[in-house]
Amino acid sequence: MEAATPTRPPHAAPSSSPSPSPASLRQWRPAAQRNLRNQWSRLLAAKARWLSAAADGRSHASALVNAHLSRRYMPGMDLGVLKDMPGIREKASGKLARREEQCQSMLLSAYREMVLATAELVRASHSMRCFSKVAANSPLIRFTERQDDMNDSGDGGGSPVFKWFSVLEFENLAQELVDMFISELQLKRLLVLELLSVTFKEGVQHDASLEWSNELFDGEFNEFQSIGLLSGDNYALPKNWSAGVSKAWQPDQTPSHEVLQVYLTSWLANVNIKTSRIDEIFELVGEEMQIKLS
């Protein structure tokens, strides 16, 4: 499966604006430092939110698979002394089906949290620049995350914000984080789609069907669009997401017990997220800012 196309922050190219005067830089730097601390704190919180939702999702996915397999094998299961009870298999199957529906709902809720956390990661990574804003009829210079003056790149002309790192270097580190979570969200979405489709196909909801281009929850595509993860009218999701799924997903096949266990293991592994590198990035940024990000 191809990784999702990295979403580059605005102004990710090296600054072409002239170097600000020393006086302007002295005014800009405290505001830029304050903004960067805020955005990296947002990244830290969004990262924790994402990982917590992923852990919840794995728990719900495991419960869904267990209920589904129990219902699948119920007709041939040895019930021992219970085998002669009238309607026991039908009653057990009905309860398992209701359990599947509950687990579906909880799995979707966890996935939604992951999407919202990813959106927060992207927004924070795109908000690291600090632009000057001159108030009308006031000599005071204020600062904002929005670029009103196209001649102001918001990066202090490439000057270090704290000691060594420029705004662009902070942005590149943030983008490295974001790319990991976007790639993993792609995989998680595929697993959610498959786990929901299995139960739909095997009788919990006979009239339901899912395609890659369907929203998995109301507002999902609005969230993707708000952070630049939609790519044109012909695809509900980025082209390389759709291409990857067309190779990996086979909606007409019912996965075996072993395949479902592989899905759960893949979910648990967070295969696209390099935890040691994430810790290293936050430690590096924290040292540069002289704050603790953990």
Rank of each mutant, 00 (worst) to 15 (best):
L264R: 03
V161K: 10
G80R: 06
R8C: 02
L237T: 09
S197N: 15
E194N: 07
M1Y: 05
G57T: 05
A110F: 04
M106N: 05
A248Q: 14
L210Y: 14
E223L: 14
S256V: 07
L210M: 12
L195R: 07
S41N: 08
V198N: 06
A32L: 08
M128I: 05
A23Y: 09
G87H: 11
W212A: 13
L293V: 03
Q186G: 10
P255E: 04
V122W: 01
L108S: 03
I182W: 00
P14T: 08
S24K: 12
S93L: 04
L107Y: 02
I278C: 10
F143C: 06
W212I: 11
A97Y: 00
I141L: 11
V245N: 07
L64I: 09
R98P: 00
A46F: 02
V245D: 03
L64W: 01
A61D: 07
G156D: 07
T118P: 01
P251Q: 08
F165H: 10
T254Q: 07
M128D: 04
A236I: 01
P30E: 09
S226R: 15
V115F: 00
L190A: 10
W164N: 15
G154E: 05
R146E: 13
R189S: 03
I182G: 08
V204D: 10
L43G: 04
S138A: 10
V285W: 09
A92K: 04
Q33A: 11
I227D: 04
R58K: 11
S59R: 11
N214V: 04
R71E: 08
Y111I: 02
R37A: 09
H206R: 15
S70W: 10
F217V: 02
S246H: 10
D155S: 13
G57E: 09
S242V: 14
L268A: 15
A13I: 08
S93M: 13
A3V: 10
F224D: 10
S125A: 15
R123D: 11
P18Q: 12
N38L: 14
R71D: 08
T7I: 14
N151C: 07
H206S: 15
V259K: 14
N137K: 11
H60S: 13
R72P: 01
T7P: 03
V262D: 15
K163E: 14
L191Q: 09
L43Y: 06
M289I: 10
Q175H: 12
S59C: 02
V259G: 00
M74N: 13
P86M: 05
L82K: 12
Q104T: 02
P238G: 08
L260E: 06
F131I: 04
L193Y: 03
A119S: 11
S266A: 12
R34G: 07
W28N: 12
T254P: 00
N270L: 13
Q27G: 05
E120V: 01
A97N: 06
R146Q: 11
G94A: 14
S138W: 01
A13F: 14
S166V: 12
R26D: 12
G228C: 13
R29I: 11
A124H: 02
A243Q: 15
G219F: 15
M114R: 07
G154P: 03
P86D: 04
E211D: 14
S197C: 06
